[in-house]
Design a protein around this nucleic acid. Structure first.
Lengths: 209, 209
DNA sequence: ACCTGAACACCGTTCAAGT
DNA sequence: ACCTGAACACCGTTCAAGT
């Protein structure tokens, strides 16, 4: 088997998935159509079906491939608490850097699966602070949901040019606090909101050591 | 103008939106096609375009209509903290009761707009504990993101029969904590996770009184 | 002002037929 | 084992034409 798949002879399952990922990364999810994909591969539409089944199965393969690429996790920080914070920030950043992955996972209901590679690393840190079993699972779940939902919300919010900034005319009750109204009209600082909530979560979840 | 729009003579903008909402509620978002909508209305496909513009504009109208239906908020609880908790839980429940709204809002990038009707009520409670201006805005944003993301994640997670339960074979590092592995393999208790994180958030955000 | 049919440029998927 | 063209049953949208 040649490292770089030859272009001419035909199409492999891998080349289909790779090309599909490239199409999505260079454009967006809705740019991924079977016909365009086949055109880019230089084959008939129907041969794709032989290799990957159908569109849903193809997207599943794409998600798996992208997740496999980010399986290794490195941790920094002195205390376990610092390492957990670093882990969560790092994971948020990684998902953030792969916005296409989020859209893909959403379409296939694999949103939570995006977090799986991080669970082992988190469990290790929780063990270090004496959390095991069910308690550790609850903590992992809480952090997992926080990271994933943060990225999902931010990405879908800024996906289009829609009026996501809240409409100030909607609150007659707030006219006595113009500073609040102004602050709500400003764009959301997702990063800050993420950090605050993460810290609050850790205060609650991770025992002080 | 008759209260209940007459069926025979023609189609109104309202009847288009209402029928579209009914279609989505009885099925799901992808059941909403212009052709099916027109069939259900008894008109030609093209007349819909005259009334609402195009599909995107129609979905916008649907979101606005659904949000208008849940604009009034009632609060219960003695202390401000209890009332804020009640508000967040109530809002989560309302969004939860309208899963179609979430899918609709997602398609039109109006995810955060779903929360808008609740902002005024939240601001009132924060004023009661002495939070104003920028601090109050940060608190509102934090609670807003928590509620919305909680519902979004849970709904997309259970949208389909996909394998959302995490695969236990993926963590060789965890074999020394079988209770943790078992707990992670079990379905997520979103309600509990929501309450824990909400409490943690409030500890951080709302000043003790 | 409102509604129509015809047409355009797309989709995903199946299937029998080729080599 | 792999690839093909033709066909089916859909999409959203435009546009000229009707009343």
């Amino acid at each position: 088997m040649t490292q770089r798949a030859a272009r001419e002879p035909g199409v492999s399952r891998d080349s289909v998935v790779d090309t599909a990922i490239r199409i999505v990364e260079e454009n967006d999810l809705e740019a991924l159509t079977m016909r365009r994909l086949s055109a880019e591969l230089g084959t008939a539409v129907t041969s794709i079906y032989w290799h990957v089944g159908n569109r849903d199965a193809l997207v599943d393969l794409m998600v798996d491939k992208l997740l496999a690429d980010m399986r290794d996790v490195t941790v920094g920080g002195r205390t376990p608490r610092a390492r957990i914070t670093s882990l969560c920030r790092q994971w948020r950043q990684r998902l953030w850097d792969h916005p296409h992955l989020i859209a893909l996972a959403h379409e296939r209901n694999k949103t939570l699966a995006m977090f799986q590679p991080m669970q082992a690393a988190l469990a290790r840190e929780l063990h270090a602070v004496g959390m095991r079993g069910k308690d550790a699972a609850v903590a992992i779940r809480g952090l997992q949901l926080h990271v994933v939902s943060s990225v999902v919300i931010e990405r879908t919010a800024q996906r289009g040019p829609t009026t996501e900034a809240t409409d100030p005319t909607a609150w007659p009750a707030l006219t006595d606090d113009p500073e609040l109204v102004a602050a709500l009209a400003a764009p959301v600082d997702y990063r800050a909101a993420f950090d605050i909530a993460l810290d609050a979560l850790l205060d609650r979840i991770v025992p002080k050591v």
